[in-house]
Amino acid sequence: MPQPRWVDAATVRRSLSPDRARRLVRQALADGLDPSADPLRQAVPAGDGQLLVMPSANRRAAGVKVLSVAPGNPARDLERIQAVYVLMDTETLTPSVLIDGSAVTSLRTPAVSAVAMEALAPAVVDAAVVFGTGPQAVGHVEALLAIRHTPSVTVVGRRGEAARATAQRVSSLTGHGRLDVRALTVDDDAVEDAVRAAQVVVTATSAATPVLGDDWVADGACVVAIGSHEAHRRELGSGLLGRSLVVVEDLATAHREAGDVILAAAQGAMDWDDVHTLQDLVLGRVERASDRPNVFKSVGMAWQDLVIAEHVARH
């Protein structure tokens, strides 16, 4: 078997900008890609964490991302999530390219969120709040800045040191004009005021319970929740989901993995019949609400990785 070509994280970033990644994801949905055709994500307990296997295929290529999730890794100065992506052509299914899977995830997750934010966020975003201090927090700010001029960003973390470090990384994002960035901890009284004043709120945490109050988010604002993919975990409360326009990547996948929506529906706060998909947004079948919050709950799907990996391999 020929030796697969290796593509490292730096090459992934050079090959594809965050905004180009957004446009690729959006175009795939506009062209009729069916997210429901994705195979189920496989999760296997391993050590103190879990292994995830995410395969997908289209007419041209097939690929699989293998991830490890180790909650104790940050204390070891290692990433909580690590991954490798294997890309193959559909004719021979010979592995041709190995790609840094964490870099693929770091690009595709904000790209998917940006497709939703582009449709669900107000045209003017004066302030944004990001819960979380990992790579996805920075990636989502970068993705937002590519579609909206946003002069003020608040980073909220459990630990002040981590929040300040992430705020510093956000401040270093270039090409978007002057950026006022501040760091808060989750128990700071100023967090509620920041959320109430924000037009975009992103939750990119490992929390299992809601990180913001049900009544904090303003009508017309956009909330993006990306931190969990398990039925028993949530970052958003039932009250917030119940008063919001709710959008997910795929209904069947959300029924299995979107704990925020699953728990809110089980508690009678909302009805699954009122939930829309990202493709509905892209195709104009649903529009953002101005009289209530707009929530996009993402769990991540394998087709998104394949869209990014194909482009990286070609370039």
Rank of each mutant, 00 (worst) to 15 (best):
Q3Y: 12
P4V: 01
R5M: 11
A10C: 07
R14C: 07
S17L: 08
D19S: 15
A21L: 04
A21P: 01
R22M: 08
V25N: 02
V25C: 12
R26I: 04
A30L: 14
A30G: 13
D34L: 12
D38H: 09
L40A: 13
R41F: 03
A46F: 15
L51H: 09
L52Q: 01
L52T: 05
V53F: 14
M54H: 04
A57E: 14
R59C: 10
R60L: 14
A62K: 11
S68K: 03
S68V: 06
G72V: 11
P74L: 05
I81R: 11
V97I: 08
V97L: 00
L98H: 01
A103Q: 06
T105E: 01
A111T: 00
M117V: 14
A123Q: 11
A127L: 00
A127V: 00
A128G: 13
V129L: 05
F131H: 09
G134Y: 00
P135S: 13
Q136S: 06
E142M: 06
A143L: 03
L144I: 05
L145W: 15
T150P: 04
T150W: 08
V155A: 11
R158S: 10
A162M: 05
A167C: 09
Q168M: 12
Q168S: 15
H176C: 10
V181W: 06
L184A: 10
D188L: 08
A194H: 02
A194K: 01
V195C: 00
R196C: 01
A197M: 02
V201I: 11
V201S: 04
V202A: 09
T203P: 03
A204K: 04
G213T: 09
D215W: 09
V217F: 02
G220Y: 03
A225N: 08
A225L: 07
I226L: 08
R234A: 06
E235P: 08
L236C: 04
G242N: 03
S244M: 01
S244C: 02
E249A: 02
T253M: 00
A265S: 06
A265N: 02
A266I: 01
M270K: 05
D271C: 11
D271G: 10
D273N: 14
H276G: 01
D280G: 04
L281K: 04
V282L: 06
L283E: 15
V286E: 06
V286N: 03
A289T: 02
S290P: 00
S290H: 14
S290A: 13
P293D: 05
F296N: 12
S298R: 00
V299Y: 05
Q304E: 14
D305I: 06
V307P: 09
R314K: 15
